[in-house]
């Protein structure tokens, strides 16, 4: 589960402004292969923005982000190619509402010709089985529960065969009884060695699965360490203060 050393993501002095608002002030961070990094922090601290910079859904203001050694902030980089390798799971699932579960999953690989139609379908059915939704292939998103939608969204991302998965509060929009089924899928992924960056308020998940926990506030990384170091022996007063509210 723990990282084996090869650097997958390297962020150097990342800054991001929205107009005059400085959201990320000076972020440097490395994620190694197979590592599970959990980002925590109060609302507005910039967790989503950081995650979205990693696959360039947000353009950075300054600094550098290397994914597999490839500088994604360089405008000569083919960002679409890089994104094929970085799956992303959103808080609100963002399933394509006009397409069946199966077509949600096969759309991108078929269009991008990373898989043939038959291969894509076969792979989608395997993945759906893996997330426990083999019987939902023909369903439309509107016919699924929140937990099922999110599991489809994860499967859809996995269909591209990514090396890295980004999760932005994947369980925050779910009814409490559905959180477990999504976290279970994520735990499986972590166990299989996926490199993961997860923004979440699920401290239990972080304790169990994270190799490293990063606490962000006000656009800075305030403190980072193993789950034990952060949750049981935090050093920074701001971390302690935040944890006292969420634990």
């Amino acid at each position: 589960m723990a990282g084996n050393g090869a650097v997958k993501i390297s962020v150097k002095n990342l800054k991001k402004n929205f107009g005059s608002l400085e959201v990320l002030k000076d972020i440097s961070l490395e994620v190694t292969e197979g590592e599970v990094v959990v980002l925590i922090g109060p609302s507005g601290s910039g967790k989503s923005t950081l995650l979205r910079c990693l696959n360039q859904l947000e353009k950075v203001t300054s600094g550098q982000i290397l994914v597999d050694g490839c500088d994604v902030t360089d405008k000569h980089t083919n960002i679409n190619k890089v994104r094929e390798n970085i799956g992303m799971v959103f808080q609100h699932f963002n399933l394509f509402n006009h397409l069946s579960v199966l077509n949600n999953m096969t759309l991108a690989p078929v269009h991008l010709k990373t898989l043939s139609k038959e291969e894509a379908k076969e792979k989608a059915l395997q993945l759906l089985t893996r997330v426990g939704l083999a019987d939902k292939a023909e369903a439309f998103p509107s016919q699924l529960s929140g937990g099922q939608k999110q599991r489809v969204a994860i499967a859809r991302a996995l269909e591209m065969n990514p090396d890295i998965m980004l999760f932005d509060e994947p369980t925050s929009a779910l009814d409490p009884e559905m959180v477990g089924e999504v976290l279970a899928v994520m735990k499986e992924l972590a166990k299989d060695g996926m490199t993961m960056v997860v923004v979440t308020h699920e401290i239990g998940f972080a304790r169990e699965v994270a190799d490293r926990v990063i606490f962000m506030e006000g656009g800075y990384i305030v403190e980072e360490g193993t789950p034990d170091e952060i949750f049981n022996h935090a050093k920074e007063p701001r971390t302690i203060d935040f944890l006292s509210k969420v634990l």
Partner: peptide, 10 residues
């Protein structure tokens, strides 16, 4: 919807 598409490489 667009963001999900872009994140898949479209």
């Amino acid at each position: 919807q667009m963001e999900a598409g872009r994140s898949l490489g479209l």
